[in-house]
Design a binder for these strands. Structure first.
Length: 604
RNA sequence: UGGGGCGUGGCCAAGCGGUAAGGCAACGGGUUUUGGUCCCGUCAUGCGUAGGUUCGAAUCCUGCCGCCCCAGCCA
């Protein structure tokens, strides 16, 4: 895009070279999650990469369910994945999202003297209101079966009757070659017959497999006659009971890419050792169209969280979080519920870059991106999370003034609003200290501070519970000449604090989130311990009776704003109700005072 | 001890033979009716390490060291 500097990385470089060399004429990528869990921030990196490349080169990116293992997959996951992808790319790469008409299957056609299967994406611009759905690898089971037959005919695959244990044992080891299957020399006709009977359901699970005939002595283990098909008498979330044989990832993936006309198949590093097999399968079939090219990048790791779907699933199943969309989860749905804007997540994915080295990105960068985005457009409001009553002794009882407050100092166009002020207000407990520590600028006896958009007040004393000594309320006097916050004599105060009028306050529940794990790298588990031992017991703090300024009464589910001086918050889309508002803290504001305070206590 | 990858500041990451970009974090300062934002400044004589080639090396060559991935009928 002109004027926009697109990030350069080794993958985009490859795409550019392929284009320049004329190997391809357009770019088609794909995002191929297995529907066995919810998408997380690691997937977001992949989504931004694949859609980002499609977008940059005027191509498309197909959303495809890599659903070849029916025992682990579920429609709940395909639905959540589809929604998460759409949400994440909205307003950025919608036009690149390749889907297909509901029910569409690959078209069988003859090409180059042979049969070919192809399924083109339907782009949003040409959908004309038709119902669209993601691609499914399982929609290719029939073509895949045909390709398997072809491989057998070419003498490049055979049906093997060894048990799983035997196959394991015969595979050899990294430094020791394997032994050939006793069935490797089976005739083409026999393998063809057996494979057809496998499909027909004549054999029980595990009785036999279809294997590629490559090289049991290959140093790369994935070339040692890998299994291509296995028998599983289970129904599939998308194909039902149509099949009892299911293709393995290596066989299905490259061919799915081929069927969709994918030019670049970008995946994570652990698949690098599979690349020779990916290429072997496509080349063995002698396909008539250009082949996709697989390249790998390093997956994302973020501090204080885990990224494996297996571990995230455990957190959900064991009730250690409140679900896949728990705001503490690194899932896209969790981040959305917490209030992270899609644009901030995309910005993060762009900033972390793409390379091949292992990496662990600090959570702080993600939070920085969230703050930077929200700062620009989130409206400001005043809310007191831990209320402390302040009585302004010389303010007339029963009097109410409407104070004009700025909605967003970053954007004058967002205007102003009126906030009611009266004799009794709430301030944050943190904003008062009976005995102020050094450098504490907020309210304390004898000190004058500014109430934001209101008046300068001076603390005159406190009222304590005679029993416990707990501070029940703070007493103060205001200077009537300072309406709006400025003193006519030009005197300065060191601090401005927020407040909410007691008589006008809205009650709300506010949920504060800390990191899910207390340790930077939860995957680094001490001997004999479980990763759940690293969980942060204080990751969720629920506050009741928080006091909000009345303008927030109309806040809608999902709506985001900044509570001044505290952080960015959003109305919980699930649990909030009119009159019973629930807010999630998305991220705190940077807090210079807490750093000073921390240094003081550590120094002491 | 087989094969495949990767080593640039605390964390990411540019760099593609001409003398170490940028971001986050951290630290110091300025502005400020959010201890926010914004602005300014500091932060690798050094690119895993040892040699070699070259007028010149993070970039090329060789050796060594370290880390990651692969022995699912998971993806």
């Amino acid at each position: 895009m002109i004027g926009e500097t697109e990030r350069q990385d080794f993958l985009r470089e490859m795409v550019q070279q392929d284009l320049a060399a004329g190997r391809i004429s357009g770019v088609v990528t794909r995002f191929p999650p297995e529907p066995n869990g919810y998408l997380h921030i690691g997937h977001a990196k992949s989504i931004c990469l694949n859609f980002g490349i499609a977008r940059q080169f005027g191509g498309q990116c197909n959303l495809r369910m890599d659903d070849t293992n029916p025992t682990k997959e579920d429609v709940e996951y395909v639905d959540s994945i589809t929604a998460d992808v759409k949400w994440l790319i909205a307003g950025w790469a919608d036009h690149c999202l390749g889907l297909k008409r509901v029910g569409d299957l690959p078209e069988k056609r003859s090409l180059g003297g042979g049969e070919d299967y192809y399924l083109a994406p339907v782009m949003p611009a040409e959908s004309r209101g038709e119902a669209l759905e993601p691609f499914y690898a399982s929609d290719y089971f029939e073509p895949l079966y045909e390709y398997a037959l072809e491989l057998i005919r070419k003498g490049k695959a055979f049906v093997c009757d060894h048990t799983a244990e035997e196959v394991d044992e015969m595979r050899g080891a990294p430094d020791r070659p394997g032994r050939e299957s006793a069935y490797r020399g089976r005739s083409v006709a026999e393998s063809l017959d057996l494979f057809q009977r496998m499909r027909a359901g004549e054999f029980p699970d595990g009785a036999c497999t279809l294997r590629a005939k490559i090289d049991m002595g290959a140093p790369n283990i994935w070339l040692r006659d890998p299994v291509l098909y296995r028998i599983r008498h289970v129904s599939h979330h998308h194909t039902g009971d149509q099949w009892c044989i299911y293709p393995m990832y290596d066989f299905a993936h490259g061919l799915s890419d081929y069927i969709e006309g994918i030019t670049h198949s970008i995946c994570t590093l652990e698949f690098e050792v599979h690349r020779p097999l990916y290429e072997w399968i496509l080349e063995a079939l002698e396909l008539p169209r250009a082949l996709p090219r697989q390249r790998e990048f390093a997956r994302l790791n973020v501090t204080y969280t885990v990224m494996s779907k297996r571990k995230l699933l455990r957190l959900v199943q064991e009730g250690l979080v409140r679900g896949w969309d728990d705001p503490r989860m690194p899932t896209i749905s969790g981040m959305r519920r917490r209030g992270y804007p899609a644009e901030a997540i995309r910005d993060f994915c762009e900033r972390i870059g793409v390379a091949k080295r292992e990496n662990m990105v600090q959570l702080e960068l993600l939070e920085h991106c969230v703050r930077e985005d929200l700062n620009r457009w989130a409206p400001r409001a005043m809310a007191v999370l831990r209320p402390l009553r302040v009585v302004i002794e010389n303010y007339p009882e029963g009097q109410v003034e409407e104070m004009e407050a700025v909605n967003n100092p970053e954007d004058a166009g967002m205007g102003t609003r009126q906030v009611p002020f009266s004799r009794v207000i709430y301030i944050e407990q943190d904003d008062f200290r009976e005995v102020p520590p050094p450098k504490y600028h907020r309210l304390s006896p004898g000190v004058e501070v500014r109430l934001r958009y209101a008046y300068l007040i001076t603390c005159t004393g406190v009222v304590k519970d005679p029993e416990s000594g707990e501070i029940l309320e703070v007493r103060a006097r205001y200077d009537p000449a300072t309406r709006g916050g400025d003193a006519p004599d030009g005197r300065k105060v060191k601090s401005t604090i927020h407040w909410v009028s007691e008589a006008h306050a809205l009650d709300a529940e506010v949920r504060l989130y800390g990191t899910l794990f207390a340790v930077e790298n939860p995957d680094e588990v001490p001997e004999g311990e479980d990763f759940t031992g690293g969980l942060n017991a204080g990751s969720l703090e629920t506050l009741q009776g928080c006091k909000l300024e009345p303008s927030l009464a109309a806040a809608l589910p999902g709506e985001r704003c900044q509570f001044e001086r505290l952080g960015y918050f959003c109305v919980d889309p699930e649990d909030s109700r009119p009159g019973a508002l629930v807010f999630n803290r998305t991220v705190t504001l940077k807090d210079a005072w807490s750093r000073i305070e921390k240094r003081q206590t550590e120094g002491a």
